[in-house]
Design a protein around this nucleic acid. Sequence first.
RNA 1: GGGCGAGUGGCGGAACUGGUAUACGCGCUGGACUUAAAAUCCAGUGGCCGUAAGGCCUUGAGGGUUCGAGUCCCUCCUCGCCCACCA
Length: 799
Amino acid sequence: MYSHKIIEPKWQKIWLTEKANQAEDFSSKDKKYILDMFPYPSGEGLHTGHPEGYTATDILSRFYRFQGFNVIHPIGWDAFGLPAENYAIKKGTPPWETIPKNIANFKRQIQSLGFSYDWDREINTSDPEYYRWTQWLFLQLYKAGLAYKKAAPVNWCDSCQTVLANEQVVGGKCERCSSEVSQKNLEQWFFKVTQYAEELLKEIDNLDWPEPLKAAQRNWIGKSSGAEIKFKLKDSGNQVKETIVFTTRPDTIFGATFLVVSPELAKDWIDAGWLANSAVITYIKESLERRIKDPHGEHLKKTGIFAGLTAINPANNQEISVWIADYVLGGYGTGAIMAVPAHDERDFEFAKKFDLPVVEVIKPLNQESASTGCFCGLGELINSGEFTGRLSEKAFTEITKKIGAKLTTRYKIRDWLVSRQRFWGAPIPIIYCVKCGLQPVLEKDLPVRLPDDVDFKPTGESPLKRSKKFQAGVVCPKCGKEAQRECDTLDTFVCSSWYFLRYTDPNNAKEAFAKPLARYWLPVDIYVGGMEHAVGHFIFSRFVTKALADQNYLPFREPFLKIRNQGTILAEDGEKMSKSRGNVVNPDEVVANYGADTLRLYEMFMGPFADTKPWNMNNIMGVRRFLDRAYTLITEPAKLAATINGEVEKLIHRTIKKVSDDIEGFNFNTAISALMILLNELVSKKDLITQEQMEKFVVLLAPFAPHLAEELWQVLGHQQSIFKGKWLKVDKKYLVDNEVTVVIQINGKVRAELLVPIDLSVETLKEKVLALPVVEKYLASRVPKKVIVIPNKLVNIVV
RNA sequence: GGGCGAGUGGCGGAACUGGUAUACGCGCUGGACUUAAAAUCCAGUGGCCGUAAGGCCUUGAGGGUUCGAGUCCCUCCUCGCCCACCA
């Protein structure tokens, strides 16, 4: 038994004071940028998920430093955000008091785990010296036309008098006060992510990311190609207008028996004084509210109303009715569709409910007649005038051309809404002047600081509006006259969309980062974090990188070359860890009881890195026992062997190979199992081991259990830190065997095995095996029908 | 509804491009040490039949390909995650 309570703090202190993990700018060594997701410093402190990802990157960082790389492995605090502000509303303690306390606690916890961060690069997004550059980023996007303002619907709680994020709306009710949430149109800031939709999609192919993550992003970007088709519209007074629909199936247009318009688009028509029918107006109003209250359930009901309009199908000039319905979205395509009930399930359902005509125009290729019900695949056109008999694919472009429609590509991805009517975030650096209008704050005037005279009580406006200090002395940057600041703050995802850039030059007071440093360190080589950021943070960072590359700030267009996702750690009961269930494991307790090395090793040994896996206190004892055995082996006085034992040396070299490969492949669980196997061998042959062999084991252990390894290294007589040393070389001669065990099967069943020299010829091996008494017994004088020989592996005799 | 995963001992999990299924760890059983217990060490440990030698079965279920399938193909069941009326 070793005392982790003595060993671990001892080495942590030494590493910190010696700045053992500093990354060196412009070193001639090859660089590796190994990045973790920086934590939000919550009041609860670290949970078990943090050490999982952080241990993985720490193993990699130490491993690559051993390999001679100049590793940058930074950490910081994603310190802006709602929880701190909500805490201020509830308890009255402002975020600028709670957050530093939480950060101090997080830092203590992270340091207690011995992670090899370069603490000189620590950043904090709520520090004015950081958010100054977040604001700078906003200005660059604004200048490039990538940040713009427009009215957008937001969730509004009348009782709390505040805007709510989507996550704060639960079942159409306010999370806090449970009163009804309604929709309000407010001016909001957006980033034009859609401008990069195609590039964001295309570049995914070239990235070393987990496939599920790539799939999630492709899905989110949601490219689809189709046609935009113009339909003429007529109201009862014979006023003529037109609308454009987007469809991915122009080949089905002869089956378009009605048109459906989204409530959003219909509302625009009302506002333009077009649809005056009061029933229609009521429907639209209710529908728009319904969307917010129950975004996931209501759609099954397929509500709708006749708009009182007719449209002309441009393919066959037939008059069709125009409907307004919930199932058509305002934000996608053109907000209007041509409904082809015979070949679209949703249209079909709607047509059935409102008794609308269904005309089949596509016949499945492998069937004699048209299908009954709804067929959504491609096929051969029927009932389609001159196009009857064509295949869908061909008709697609032909029909589009004939009716004068346009081929287009649409994306599901939306522009990023970045403004928040909240206090605890980076203020948007914009000034409103009565005379000059909207003006960006001058870069030299950054940062726009958060004031401290804030009333957190929610009243429906941004809390900054009630700060006297915030607006004091604000003048228009253009005309110099008195003006007003923008009072919204930026989404915290803006802060985290560029933080990995700041790590390269964290103390630069003149720039967000110096270009030569960005060029040296970036892009990020390995990034580890959860899958939950698939369509958020990972997309935002890619967008920001591309935007800055286009402004010549960065010489690359993709920020993260390799990403690996960590799996969720569940509680011992197989459920998610949560305070309400009372099944949360506190890393502090594990460190106190078993030590940091044990926690690190355990979390890596639990199972495959990317898998969801349950916690188990018993299994922790297993890894602790392993560390104790290692300690005992090396510290107990034993006779050291003078000559190298071949068997031991062979296993050592195989373990070096296995552990090295497994670290790079993120197979930490099997790497640890290989270390256990090696230790078992060393213990059982402890009188046959040389000093050098002991040392090799300790080096292999070092990335995983750095404290113990450092201690044992000292015990073995070294003055200098083990981490100043080199990784181990595999001697290939130990990887080849000169004898192998060949498995002997009779009819596919294992019946015997045979130790033979390696690379025995097929013929010799066959002869040897057939001559075995066991084989003769099983053959019982039958003649083998066939003998399969796989050299060095297996012989299968078929009778 | 769409997308992505995953089902292997009592438990967490191993198994390279098809080639000894159950590595490693936990737990359990027996033994050593101890007055005793803990810790530690040693041995055993997939199931069924058998005193034994040995035999049969076994990777969610059922088919198929193959000399040989946890791994490949088809059908189905169960669970998890993400997105969700995207025309």
